[in-house]
Amino acid sequence: MSIIVNLDVMLATRKMKSIELAEKIGITTANLSILKSGKAKAIRFSTLEAICKELDCQPGDILAFSSDESADI
């Protein structure tokens, strides 16, 4: 997919662990792992809102678009 999830970077800059974020936003660590690995097909606005609120960032800080076709593979 050409949408890149930069959640790892944001978590590292905020020095927060995945499990901690998952607990705070109310999703399972397995789902957060799917989101981080870029396997997710879609993200709900409510989830995005919760992540942005917890990490104090904008949606653009978490998601980025890349036109590189090789990202699909």
């Binding site: 999703i27 789902n31 957060l32 799917i34 989101l35 396997k39 997710a40 097909k41 879609a42 993200i43 709900r44 989830t47």
Partner: peptide, 8 residues
């Protein structure tokens, strides 16, 4: 179904 399951 897969898309629905992979919607976080």
């Amino acid at each position: 179904k897969e898309e629905n399951e992979l919607t976080i």
